[in-house]
Design a protein around this nucleic acid. Structure first.
Lengths: 159, 159
DNA sequence: GCCAGCATACTCGGATAGATTATGTCCGAGTTAGTTTGG
DNA sequence: CCAAACTAACTCGGACATAATCTATCCGAGTATGCTGGC
C-alpha cells in the first residue's frame, strides 16, 4: 500500500486543528513532517478529487477539509489514495481451466474469491467505522495540548 | 496484491484432490489454468519455503501439500506469497514532526497506526479462520463432481 | 484622499523523469527410472 | 536369469531480463494581493 495513505491521514487530522475556513498550503503540510512537497501535493490533489479535501488556488490558497470531519471515514481517505479496487482482485483463472466457461462470473461463484472478498469487506468495515472526527477526539483526549501546538506551529511557521 | 496469491490458493485446493502422497509437477499445475509455468514455479517455491507445500525433485517429482489441509489456513498461503508485513506499514512520520522524538515507538502510540493495524488484524483474522480443508469441503458440497474431474484431468493430462 | 488598473508573487494542477517492485524467462544441480552389460 | 552400474531424461531451484507501478520532480495556468498612478 502506498505510503501516501499515511501522509493523507495525518494531513486530514492536522487540518481539523486549524481555524475554521483557513486553507493550509501543501508547502506547510509537507514541512510539518519533512515530506517532499510536490509529491505530497499530488496526494492532496487525489483527496481533492475525491471530495475529502477542497482546494483553493492563488495566494492565501491551500487545502481544507471538503466536509465535516464527522463525515470523513478513514476508508474514504484510503480509497481516495489507493483507488476503489479491492486488494485481492480475482482474475477468474477458473474460466481458463477444464470445465471453465467464460460465461460464468467466477468473481461471484468461486469460493476462493468469496473468501478473499469477505476478508476485504471486514477490513473495509473496520476502516469505515472510524471517522477523522473520531481520531481527532481520541488524540485530543490522550494528548491534550496537541491541537494548540499544531495550530501554533502552522501560524509561526519558520520561513 | 500479487496475483500469485490466487494461483497459489487454487493450486493448494487442487492438490487436495490428487492421490495421497502423489506429487504434481509445476508443469501440470500451470497447464490446468494456462498459467506461465516458470513463474508459477516461483510461487510454488515460496509456498515450499513456508512449509505450505513440500517439493520432490527429479522424475516423478513435483509438489504436494506440506501438511494436512486442515492445518493450512488461507492466511498461511497469503503470507507465504506476500510476506509477513502488513499492507499498511507505518513510517512513523510523527517522529520527524514538531514535538516528535526518535525514541518513541509511533507504530504503537500513533492512533492512525493503531487504526490501520486494527483493520489489518480483522482482515488477517478472517483469512486465518478459513482453512484449505474448509474450502475443499465447501467446493465438494456445491460442485460434487469437481474432485473426480480434477483427479482425472491430472491423470489423463494431454501430452 | 480615494479609486481603478496593473504588475507581481504565490498557489494548485497536471505533465514529465527516476527508482523500486512485480512479472516473466532461462539454464544448471540433483534425482529417479529405465537400460545395458557382465557374471 | 539376476544384479549392479550406467546413461538419460525429467524435476526443482535460483539467477537473469522485462514491464508496470510507485515515487519524486519540474513547469505552466490561474488568482488574490499590494502597489501605482490618475482623478
Amino acid at each position: 500500500m502506498s505510503e501516501g495513505v499515511e501522509w493523507a491521514l495525518h494531513c486530514c487530522l492536522n487540518l481539523t486543528w486549524v481555524e475554521e475556513g483557513e486553507a493550509v498550503t501543501a508547502t506547510k503540510l509537507a514541512r510539518f513532517y519533512g515530506l517532499p512537497r510536490d509529491y505530497l501535493n499530488k496526494q492532496l490533489q487525489a483527496l481533492s478529487r475525491a471530495g475529502v479535501m477542497s482546494s483553493v488556488p492563488g495566494p492565501r490558497g491551500g487545502f481544507r477539509l471538503g466536509r465535516s470531519a464527522e463525515a470523513i471515514t478513514v476508508l474514504d481517505v484510503v480509497v481516495a489514495i489507493e483507488g476503489p479496487e479491492p486488494a485481492f482482485l480475482c482474475d477468474q483463472i477458473l474460466a481458463a481451466g477444464p470445465g471453465g466457461s467464460s460465461a460464468v462470473d467466477y468473481v461471484e461463484s468461486c469460493l476462493i474469491s468469496q473468501t478473499m472478498r469477505t476478508a476485504d469487506l471486514a477490513w473495509r468495515r473496520e476502516l469505515a467505522s472510524r471517522t477523522i472526527a473520531d481520531l481527532k477526539a481520541s488524540v485530543e483526549q490522550r494528548y491534550p495540548h496537541t491541537p494548540q501546538r499544531t495550530r501554533d506551529w502552522f501560524l509561526n511557521l519558520p520561513a
